[in-house]
Computed example of a mutant assay.
Amino acid sequence: MHDVEQLAVLASVLRTAVDAIIIIDERGTIESVNLATERMFGFRADEMLGQNVKMLMPSPYHEQHDGYLDRYQETGERHIIGIGREVTGQRKDGSLFPLHLAVSEVEAKERKLFTGILRDISDFKAAEAELKQLNATLDQRVQDQAAELQKAQTELVEKEKFATLGRISGGIAHEIRNPLNAIKTSAYYLLNAKTPSPAKTEEHLNRIDRQVSSINNAVTALSDLARLPDPQSSPMDVAEMLATILRECKLPQNIVVTQIVPADLPNVWADEKQLPIVFKNLIRNARDAMSEGGALQLSARHLESQVVVTVQDDGIGMSPDVVRRIAEPFFSTKARGMGLGMAITTAILEKNHCSMELESEPNEGTTFQISIPIAEQSQ
């Protein structure tokens, strides 16, 4: 391409370029600008040619510009040459706007020229600011929603606590109100009977004594549950424990018991007085669930660092609501008893670092799986 053609192409590029293109000499004097520069800054070309380029910059860039050029002339240190950067431009009317500036050095015979390509990034900065605002708003909304969720969760927990407390209180009230009513009836008789016989007087006094004992037993049982002592753990043989419990429970003959316990099952690590209470409660519950007979299976297996003992019956089973409330003190589906068995069971398991899984369906039976740490892993 001939020199004339090159100049024509260059002139066409300068004339049609969207970005502002400014050529300055070593002192910062503007030697050439394109049409985009005029549109961008609001100056005519003849107002800019021959002027220092710092006329297009606000403070502090205005004052710093000559220093950049002097430093480059003296040391060769490039402060902005060859490095794209964000700067602020100043229009003829004094308004400021953001620019992206890229400066390159041009060798022209015996002197140096610098070409600056400037792009107005006002729209980009506005979009960036809007995005930051949206992000800030989004962060605030997320925080607000998280706070609302936390508040709702706290309220739900509190409501559940109150609901549980209400159910427990109802159980306690039931255990105490009935004996109190009996006491009140007997006290009324003794206070108002004109000529009670010695036998009647003794009958009502004995009734009062029994009901006071009943109330005391309820309070003591609840107190014992709350103050369950810390376990004194030691190695335990699961097979021996289950065999002993079965002998003590004396299950009726219409319940067929199957035991599947491997001979090489490792010892477990638990309190030898507390852990049997768990399986006594589970086996008694299974017995009560099979009042007309059925099958009870006791099995155990070694699983990693635990022994899993399964107690499975094919009795009447439990509804989901009963399963959910089974560990509540004073909750019971039985006609007799205070409903503390499963509450005590759960407390013992927790203190002995054991866990329990429960599956039950109405009329299909119930399965408890108790995971107990093995002795070798716990000592």
Rank of each mutant, 00 (worst) to 15 (best):
V87E: 10
A129I: 12
E130S: 08
E105H: 02
R111F: 09
G116K: 08
K125D: 00
E128Y: 00
E155W: 05
E148Q: 15
R119P: 07
T115R: 02
A163E: 14
T137S: 15
A127I: 02
D144K: 04
F97Q: 00
T137N: 15
I121Y: 07
S122I: 10
L149K: 12
A127K: 04
I117S: 04
S122H: 02
L134G: 02
N135Q: 15
F124G: 09
Q150G: 08
S104E: 04
R141W: 05
G89L: 06
D123P: 04
D144E: 15
S122W: 03
F124Y: 13
A146Q: 15
L138P: 00
E130H: 07
L113K: 05
K151G: 10
A152K: 15
L96R: 09
T115C: 14
Q143P: 05
G89A: 02
P98D: 09
G89Y: 00
E158F: 11
D93S: 04
Q140W: 06
R141S: 10
K159H: 13
V103M: 08
R91Y: 03
D144Q: 12
L138S: 02
E110Q: 12
R111K: 12
E160D: 13
Q153I: 13
L96D: 00
L131R: 02
A152F: 12
F114T: 03
I117W: 01
T115F: 06
A129C: 01
E130K: 12
T88W: 08
Q90R: 04
A136P: 08
K132N: 13
H100I: 09
K125C: 02
G89K: 04
L99E: 01
R111V: 04
T88F: 00
G94P: 06
G84L: 09
P98S: 01
D93C: 01
E155H: 06
D144T: 12
G89M: 08
L149F: 11
E105A: 03
R111W: 08
Q133G: 11
F162I: 14
S95G: 04
D120P: 04
K161E: 11
D139C: 03
L149S: 11
V157N: 14
L131F: 05
H100T: 01
Q133S: 10
E107S: 12
F97V: 06
S122Q: 10
K151S: 13
A126L: 11
A163D: 12
R91C: 05
L156G: 09
L99C: 01
L118V: 04
K92S: 07
D139Y: 06
A129R: 13
A129Q: 15
S122L: 08
R141M: 11
G89D: 03
E158V: 15
A102L: 14
Q150T: 14
K132V: 10
K92M: 00
G116L: 03
V106Q: 09
R91Q: 08
D93K: 00
Q150M: 04
R119E: 09
Q140G: 09
L113G: 02
A136W: 09
D93P: 05
Q145C: 07
A163Y: 10
Q140S: 14
T154Y: 14
F114M: 05
A163V: 08
A136I: 05
G94S: 01
T88H: 12
L96Q: 01
S122F: 03
K109V: 11
V157C: 05
L118F: 10
V106W: 10
G116A: 07
A152H: 12
E86R: 03
L134R: 11
L113M: 08
R91S: 03
E158G: 00
V106A: 03
F124K: 07
L131I: 03
A152T: 12
T88E: 01
A102E: 05
V142R: 08
